[in-house]
Write a protein that binds this DNA or RNA. Sequence first.
DNA 1: ACATAATATTCAAATAATCAGATATACTAT
DNA 2: ATAGTATATCTGATTATTTGAATATTATGT
Lengths: 108, 108
Amino acid sequence: MQRFKAEFFKALAHPLRIRILEILAEGDKSVNEIQQLVETEGSTVSQQLTVLRAKNIVTGIKEGNRVIYSLRDPLIIELLDVAKKIFNNHLAETITMLDRLKDADKAE
Amino acid sequence: MQRFKAEFFKALAHPLRIRILEILAEGDKSVNEIQQLVETEGSTVSQQLTVLRAKNIVTGIKEGNRVIYSLRDPLIIELLDVAKKIFNNHLAETITMLDRLKDADKAE
DNA sequence: ACATAATATTCAAATAATCAGATATACTAT
DNA sequence: ATAGTATATCTGATTATTTGAATATTATGT
């Protein structure tokens, strides 16, 4: 069971894949549109989309010439949001920490 | 920015680390307690705790002989919950799909 | 000071993930 | 049929992750 969850998180554990998910959170897109937005080799984008598809995180449906990708579950957006919140908390903590270090320097 | 987020998810992308987080979600624990609960080599658990610490997901504070670990942010629990929901949705979908396959078999 | 228990760190080997270029497939238009 | 565009897959080189065993550190009890 943990193994499945780990697989799921592993699918999110890549900068380009996160970027793609954030893009898809705004609305469905074709591979081409995604490729242009992320400015990355076509094959690389395709490969990462394959990873996301394999983990059931996105689906691609063929529309004529192109394939339109979309998030499979709107909860993905919520997940990214919670992650962002956690992230901001820690960023804030880190900044506070840095401030203290600076103060300590001055006090010497 | 995406890189940081990816790092964060990467920290969750491991069965043992998820297991550890789920254990810590129930309450703080010492390394030893964790080791016994997960039934894994001591050094392995320690290494994974190091990973979680490095990503600011848990903190360990020394109490005499032992080190007590705890989640750094309660939002982690929320994150795992959302992940579980997504996971259950997909599990349900998969089961439905399997049912349909079964029905299709019968109909032949 | 010494032995013991708890935890952390280092190292090397095995395994897995990423990337870009070449190639393949599918669709559309001429 | 042929050419052009969109997407996917394969391949090999590179880099990262995981693991257990060995070693080190730190605190406690005698």
